[in-house]
Design a protein around this nucleic acid. Sequence first.
DNA 1: CAGTGGTCTAGACCACGCA
DNA 2: GCGTGGTCTAGACCACTGG
Lengths: 243, 243
Amino acid sequence: MEPLQHGSVIPLYHQLKERLKEAIETGRWTLGDKIPSENQLMDQFGVSRNTSKKAIEELVQEGILYRVQGKGTFVAKPKLQQSLMGFYSFSKVLKEKGLNPKDVILKIEEVSPTEKIREALELGEDEMVIEMKRLRCANNEPYILESSFIPKSVVQDPKQLNQVGEISLYDLFSQQFNIVVTRAKEAFEPVLIRAEESEYLETEAGQPALLLERTAFDVSGMPVEFCISIVRGDRCRFYTELT
Amino acid sequence: MEPLQHGSVIPLYHQLKERLKEAIETGRWTLGDKIPSENQLMDQFGVSRNTSKKAIEELVQEGILYRVQGKGTFVAKPKLQQSLMGFYSFSKVLKEKGLNPKDVILKIEEVSPTEKIREALELGEDEMVIEMKRLRCANNEPYILESSFIPKSVVQDPKQLNQVGEISLYDLFSQQFNIVVTRAKEAFEPVLIRAEESEYLETEAGQPALLLERTAFDVSGMPVEFCISIVRGDRCRFYTELT
DNA sequence: CAGTGGTCTAGACCACGCA
DNA sequence: GCGTGGTCTAGACCACTGG
């Protein structure tokens, strides 16, 4: 491990913070691992305890680490999973509780992206994408019709996506492709269900729904997924808390 | 100003933080005011600079204060205004930019609350509410039809609400009734526009819309407003960023 | 008991904004 | 030049956890 640059314009705690973050993002430490104590970091990097503390505290603030007094400092769950839960938790989303979630994969195939998708994923000319279309159900009733578009450069072989259903798409990204999704942009608006969607969602055309578009980015800021969801309005309600 | 309790179970920085927060919430300092410097707080409360700094830093983290190097520490905008801006900024909400926002008050009157409203506002039997129904426009085109329900105990005289339009409801709350809204819960779902709403919104029944319900709370956690909005789906798009 | 994080002090030097 | 916040050090005592 190279020493930190003392006397640099970049604060020591910030340099240390980046080192720790890098070690987590590259998989050096993962979910639940114990990282070195304040005293150990202090010795390893030649800084004071308050400086190593400040680096850790900011990472705790960002939700990357968590601390337990008397035990140590540990790696928290990836950030996006937390945020998604915070914003619209799928369990809370459903009016009925006691749900039995299940995803049906309708198709996985290589397609030519529309202009909108090409833009969202920052693709070049002629770059192809893999489309995975899923019907997401709870208690065997459909509630979301979802299409994920993933650049071919990310997932060379569509077959690799077949595991989705057993594990989540983002877990698959992290485990199979070494891609950690850390950020996402979302846009949504109310729409009417169209005829071709109504069949899958087992409802009628013209019923209220939410159109949700999400672009997910990996740690380097590269877009890795563009997702379009149609959410049945009668089955879903979204909650947020503004504090 | 009473001194802090040294040696208490409650950390000094936390006590100081509460003192500062209280001074802001009671109006001792308001938006844009400069608060005492770290050195001044250090002397006034008999703590070290790091302790006064930590109290301030946490309030900065919570968005209550902001700091400018070389100038000082200042009171930020009330939190809710920020959150609302962060979550669905009305300016970003509109597809068209260069908007000219205007609110038309349709009615202000004392009404008997429905069961839903009574529950949201935690009202007792026979307690009345003031309903303020507004049509919110941009570029003279309607986009939101909104009804606010406010407990009569909060605003004794409906006439006091007439200023809304010149200033925002939450600014009125803070200036006239000394109520600072600090928290809000929101729920939304897609719906179809109904006949009676379509007239105001100048569209057709059956068009997509967003139904948005918000309960706003003051500092003590008392509900002070329940608001039902119908948002035209064709004119609005909501954005969020998950990080 | 040793190790951890939680709090706190009393110093220090720096970059910045302003008069 | 002075006051501000930004960074940093080297100590200290405490409460909690685990062996």
